[in-house]
Structures are given as structure tokens and as C-alpha cells.
Design a protein around this nucleic acid. Structure first.
Length: 642
RNA sequence: GGGCCCGUAGCCCAGCCUGGACAGGGCGUCGGCCUCCUAAGCCGAAGGCCCCGGGUUCGAAUCCCGGCGGGCCCGCCA
């Protein structure tokens, strides 16, 4: 058989062909498609099985038992050189590959395709925008946000490998309340922070302090007007918590926190922050200078942090630019012409329920017919736009150069994302319900700032690298400079893998120990399998063993397992892309690596007889190739030694 | 109150789309394997009412309905 991008599909097709011939011979009106074949769970049942015989047997005239039917199928099949044995067992039809043919097919396919083996072109010419991370520029990137960034980056890589043109964007949300809060505090302490090696972390402290002070003021005002003792004790509890937060920040940088607090006292903080935001959106020179001086600093740190993790962006879009360009006002004036917008105390409110009903989009957006969709506030009473409104403008902006827009945004924003589609539909962008995709993912839970269980991306990476360094020194095979480099690459891989190896919908428990796991189901496990494979190939070359043997000499069951995993890699890729679930790739790589580690321990390559050695070296080279392709796909570094 | 997501071994996670052969791994525990291609590895043992109850089906971890438990959303925050 000729090399092919998808060897397993070839086997499916062949098995389907044989089954169709059998049902024809038997005179049944049944068509078997390649998808009706399933990979077996255990190779003792062969590589493929047909299980529909179980279901179909009873529907036939005359009815027969599944086993009878399966046996008839087998006995009425033409000969095939692809399958050595085809067996009817308990109603299944099992296909055992002819390893003389299939081994060669799989290996030559990998060798022919090389770096692109596994990556089927699934594109339709569309340009896909993947917006991800988009952290507020008022603090460092922490591990929660990192889940977003790594998922987004991996998605983008997957789509690129699937032949799409992909545009990745980071949306810098530099307008709005949160950034204004941080910038408000920043103005008093900018000089303290500017030369700090980690300004983003300091700005994070400033944000937390200012925000907490505001909350405290509010709580105290509430306490003063309440006489209900239950209510009062609840409020007091909340006040206590806030005080604790301030103390917490104090421990991190006392001078900074004190400086902020001193400057805040006696000022109408809330009003001044609102004014700052308003002036920024209006393009006031001083406000722009102030906010941008902080935002630029944080964005630089974002770039450094993300770059260290192999994450890069095609565009960095500033929310402020969208506002200043007039796009947001255009959206607002178009919305005002619809019957869905009303004014309340100067603020504009969007009647999402009415819009959805009128436009007939309730069902399409997965709202129940009797579910009341909440109103959405479009603007504050001072006229400044809220997040979803600005996002509508940004959507149209992104749409200018992309056909499909994927927003990687936490699950908790699901309602807002649906309201966003309604907003767009209301102004005539009805197609937004199709071209806008909310890629939702579950929370990282247990990140309590209260108890200081709060870890930045940088801290996670550093902790991981420390552990790698310890391990590498124990091993004593690499020089200090190599250790430095290798530990960084392993840490990057481990962190990325921990973020992307679990199903996106699932909430992940924040656990520094597990996140910094270097064993078992982790990136280093896969990276190490690659290193071992490359080690064998290096030694083989030294020993004059060329990776060019006859694949049919690969008869060990663990070799068959390796070939099976290699053959199925393109299908895993396809499934991962189709469902936008990167963890499918992790799972496949993990299984392949696991099988290879077993192989490594159990079967000698170089020391086998010369013909077998050359065949095994060839297999090892293919394993290395697939591991590399998979790791590249995930943005996880590939190393020669570790 | 309404809606969304999650529930699989002590802990963590695959499998659910497309129902099928004894439900797979990892961590941890216990016991083994480095004079041999890097032990971040391998082998073995113990550990499961697949949250509960119904339904559909020849067959349900998987599909449907109803509960329960946990998280989140319903802000002039994002």
C-alpha cells in the first residue's frame, strides 16, 4: 500500500470494502461506511472491529443471532492481503492486520510525511481569529488566566496545523473601571514601581488595595445605615475580610501599600476614578498619559511572561483604540434606533429578552422559551460604555479580517457572550450567531486570594524550573548551562501540559504540587520518551545501525501497539480539531509515550540481530517523529537530552 | 427562583460526540527492577453500587427524564 496521510483510514476503508462485498454476496441491503468500524480497545481483538452486526442481526429476515450473522459476514468476504485474519467473536467481526503490509504502510507514511504527518488539511479557506488571554492590564498573569492563554494558543496551533489561516489577538482591556482603579492608585506611586523588576506584580498590589478601600468604604456606609443585627454581623464579617486583604498586601510590600493608603485618604476616590475613566475614553491627554504609562508597563510584562511560555500574538488590540475610533459610538447609535433600548437615569439599557423574542433567536442561543433573559446595561449614566457594548464594537473590528471569531473566555461569561450575539443581531449583524464562537472553559478553583493561595504564571514557571534543576543536578549528565536551558524548556512544557491536558469544561483544582508534576501523565513524561528515542537513534548511528530495516520484522506485541498508536494519530488530531479539545492530543501522546517507555525497557534495539536492529531503529525514528509532531502541535518544547 | 457546567478508586484524570467484548490511566500506599540504548522510566499488588432513581434498548459510565451534591451566572464589574 502507498504511503498516506491517514493510514488508519486506509484500513477502515479496506475493512468496509470487505464487509460491503460480504453483505452484497449475502443479498442484504446494508451499506457499511468506514466510520462504522471502530478501533479495538485491546489488540487481542485485532485493530478494527465491526460491532453493528450485533444490532443488525435481529432486524434481518430471517432474524438470526449476532454470532451467526457475524460468521456469515466473515465467510462471505473476499480475500484481502491487508488483513491476516478476520474473525467472528460473540457477534463482533474483528480484523487482524497483516503486519507485513500494515507495518510498511504505517512506517512509510510517517517517513514520507515527516513533520506534517498527522495534520490533515481540514480547512475551508476561512480565516479564523482566536482571541485569548485578554487579561486586564492591572496586575500580573496568574495561573487562572494562564489556562485561558494556553488553551487559546494551543487551539490556534491546532487550527493552523489543520490548514486554516489563523489570526491570534490579545485584547488589552485598558478602558473601564478595573484599569482606572489601578491607574488611579498608580499615579501616586508610579515612581516606586517604575524600576521594579516586577512592576506588574506591584501594580496588582495597587489595584487590590484601591479596590479594597472602595469596598470597605461601601461596607462601612452600609453598616452605618443598618440596624438589623444579623445584617450587621454579616457586614462586619465582610469588613474583617477586607482588612485582612489589606494586611496581606502589606506583607508583600509595606512601603507601597502605605503610600497608596496615605494618598487615598480624604479623597472622593470613587468619583475620581469614574472621572479618570471618562477622561481616558474621551482621549484627554493627561488621562491618556497616566493610564498608558501603567498599561504599557504591564503589557510589556504580559509579553515577557507569555513569550516565555511559547505564546505569541499576531495582534495586540487596545480597547481604548476601539473606543476612540468611534466604533463604540456607532454601535450605540445603531442600537438606539432599535426598539430594544431604553434610558434609565442617563444609562442605556438593552432589553435582551424582547430582542431575542422579536428576532426569533431565543432557541438558537440556547435560552429556554420561558426563561427571561436579563437586561443588559449598555452605558453608564456618564455615557461611558460597558464591556459587552465595547465588545460588540470589537467584534465588528475583528470581523474585518476574519471569517470566524473564536473567543476564549471563561465559562462564567457565558450569558454575556450570548447577550453580545443578541446585541449584534439587533443592529442587523444576525450572522454573528454563526461566526462568533464562545470557547468556554471551566474555572481554576481554589485560588483564594484571601488565604494567599494565589500564584502568578511566573511563580509557577519558576517553581517548576527549580524542581527540574534539582533533578538534573542529581542526574549529573549535563553542564550547568545546559541544565539552565533544559530545565526552562521542561518547565514550560510541564506548565502548558497541566493547563491543556484536561477537558476544557471541567473545573480544575488549583494544586501547585500537581501543577508542577514532572512524572507520569505530564509533558516531561512525553518529552522523556522523545529523548529516549533520540538517544537510541544516536547510539544506533554510532554503532552503524541504519534506520532502514524491513518493517515486517517488527513482530513484538509492544511493537504492534506502537504502530497502532502511530497509525491512529491523524484521527486523534482530526477529532481534537473538530471538537476543539486539545486534551485529546495529550491523551494520545501520553499513550504513545507510555507504550514507548515499555518498549524501551523490554526490547533491545541496537543489540538485536542486525536486520531486526535496523527495523527497530526505523520504528523508533517514527515514534520520535510522531512525538515531535504532537509536542509541536501543543507548543511544548522538544529536547534532545534531559 | 431561573439558567449553565461538573460528579468515574483515598486524591487527580481519560472514556460520554457515534451505546457493545472484563470501566482505562496517574498520584499516593505496598513489593520488585540501574555491571545493559538516560530510573523524569519499567514490572507487580491492593484499591470501583462509573452520585442516586426511573426510562429507552438485546445491551447504558455513555442517550432521555427526575432528583442529589459542588461550582458559576442572572452588576451602571469584566
Amino acid at each position: 500500500m502507498q504511503p498516506t496521510p491517514n493510514p488508519f483510514l486506509k484500513l477502515r476503508e479496506e475493512a468496509a470494502k470487505l464487509l460491503n462485498a460480504a453483505v452484497d454476496n449475502l443479498g442484504f441491503d446494508i451499506t457499511v461506511s468506514p466510520d462504522d468500524l471502530k478501533p479495538t480497545r485491546n489488540l487481542k481483538f485485532g485493530w478494527l472491529c465491526y460491532e453493528h452486526a450485533l444490532r443488525l442481526a435481529r432486524t434481518l429476515a430471517p432474524p438470526q443471532t449476532p454470532q451467526e450473522f457475524a460468521e456469515k459476514l466473515v465467510s462471505h468476504m473476499p480475500e484481502s492481503n491487508v488483513f491476516l485474519k478476520i474473525e467472528a467473536v460473540r457477534g463482533y467481526v474483528n480484523f487482524y492486520p497483516n503486519l507485513n503490509v500494515v507495518n510498511h504502510l504505517v512506517i512509510s507514511s510517517v517517513e514520507t510525511l515527516g513533520d506534517v504527518y498527522g495534520f490533515e488539511d481540514l480547512s475551508d479557506g476561512r480565516v479564523i481569529c482566536v482571541e485569548h488571554c485578554s487579561a486586564n492590564p492591572c496586575g500580573p498573569i496568574h495561573v487562572g488566566t494562564l489556562r485561558n492563554a494556553v488553551l487559546g494558543d494551543t487551539l490556534a496551533r491546532m487550527l493552523r496545523h489543520a490548514g486554516y489561516r489563523v489570526l491570534t489577538r490579545f485584547y488589552v482591556e485598558d478602558t473601564g473601571r478595573q484599569t482606572a482603579i489601578a491607574a488611579y492608585g498608580w499615579q501616586f506611586v508610579a515612581d516606586l514601581i517604575k524600576r521594579d523588576p516586577r512592576p506588574d506584580e506591584k501594580i496588582g498590589i495597587v489595584y487590590t488595595v484601591v479596590n479594597t478601600v472602595i469596598e470597605l468604604e461601601e461596607l462601612r456606609r452600609k453598616a452605618a445605615t443598618t440596624s438589623d443585627p444579623d445584617q450587621l454581623s454579616l457586614i462586619n464579617h465582610e469588613i474583617h475580610r477586607r482588612v485582612g486583604i489589606i494586611h496581606n498586601q502589606m506583607e508583600r510590600d509595606e512601603a507601597l501599600v502605605k503610600a497608596v493608603l496615605e494618598n487615598l485618604s480624604g479623597r472622593p476616590v470613587v468619583d475620581e476614578i469614574a472621572q479618570l475613566n471618562l477622561r481616558y475614553e474621551q482621549g484627554d491627554e493627561n488621562a491618556v498619559r497616566l493610564i498608558r504609562s501603567m498599561v504599557d508597563l504591564v503589557v510589556q510584562e504580559f509579553q515577557k511572561t507569555l513569550e516565555a511560555l511559547n505564546i505569541s500574538y499576531d495582534r495586540w488590540d487596545y480597547q481604548s483604540e476601539i473606543v476612540w475610533s468611534g466604533l463604540v459610538n456607532q454601535i450605540l447609535s445603531r442600537l438606539k434606533q432599535t426598539p430594544f433600548v431604553r434610558e434609565e437615569g442617563g444609562a442605556l439599557i438593552f432589553d435582551a429578552e424582547r430582542a431575542a423574542v422579536t428576532l426569533g433567536l431565543k432557541e438558537r442561543l440556547r435560552f429556554h422559551f420561558d426563561e427571561e433573559i436579563p437586561d443588559l446595561t449598555l452605558t453608564r449614566s456618564d455615557g461611558t460604555a460597558l464591556y459587552v457594548t465595547k465588545d460588540a464594537a470589537y467584534t465588528l473590528y475583528k470581523r474585518r479580517d476574519s471569517d470566524l471569531l473564536i473567543n476564549v473566555i471563561a465559562q462564567e461569561q457565558s450569558l454575556a457572550q450570548r447577550q453580545l450575539k443578541l446585541l449584534l443581531a439587533a443592529i442587523g449583524e444576525r450572522d454573528a450567531v454563526n461566526y462568533l464562537v464562545h470557547f468556554s472553559y471551566g474555572p481554576v478553583v481554589g485560588l483564594s486570594r484571601r488565604r494567599g493561595r494565589y500564584m502568578t504564571a511566573r511563580e509557577a514557571l519558576e517553581a517548576l524550573q527549580e524542581r527540574c534543576i534539582v533533578l538534573l543536578r542529581e542526574r549529573g549528565e549535563l553542564s550547568e548551562s545546559e541544565i539552565n536551558k533544559v530545565s526552562r524548556l521542561v518547565a514550560v512544557g510541564a506548565l502548558r501540559y497541566s493547563m491543556v491536558s484536561i477537558e476544557p469544561d471541567r473545573p480544575v483544582q488549583f494544586d501547585p504540587k500537581r501543577m508542577t508534576d514532572l512524572e507520569a501523565n505530564s509533558a516531561p513524561f512525553v518529552q522523556y520518551a522523545y529523548v529516549r528515542a533520540r538517544g537510541i537513534l544516536r547510539r544506533a548511528a554510532e554503532a552503524g545501525v541504519s534506520p532502514n530495516g524491513d518493517p515486517s520484522l517488527l513482530k513484538e506485541s509492544v511493537e504492534e501497539r506502537l504502530l497502532f498508536m502511530i497509525a491512529r494519530f491523524p484521527e486523534s488530531f482530526r477529532y481534537a480539531v473538530r471538537t476543539l479539545r486539545p486534551h485529546v492530543i495529550c491523551e494520545h501522546l501520553y499513550q504513545l509515550a507510555r507504550t514507548f517507555h515499555r518498549y524501551y525497557e523490554a526490547v533491545p534495539v541496537i543489540k538485536a540481530d542486525p536486520d531486526t536492529a535496523r527495523a527497530r531503529a526505523r520504528l523508533v525514528r517514527c515514534v520520535a517523529q510522531v512525538l515531535k509532531n504532537g509536542l509541536d502541535l501543543l507548543g511544548i518544547p522538544v529536547l534532545e537530552r534531559m
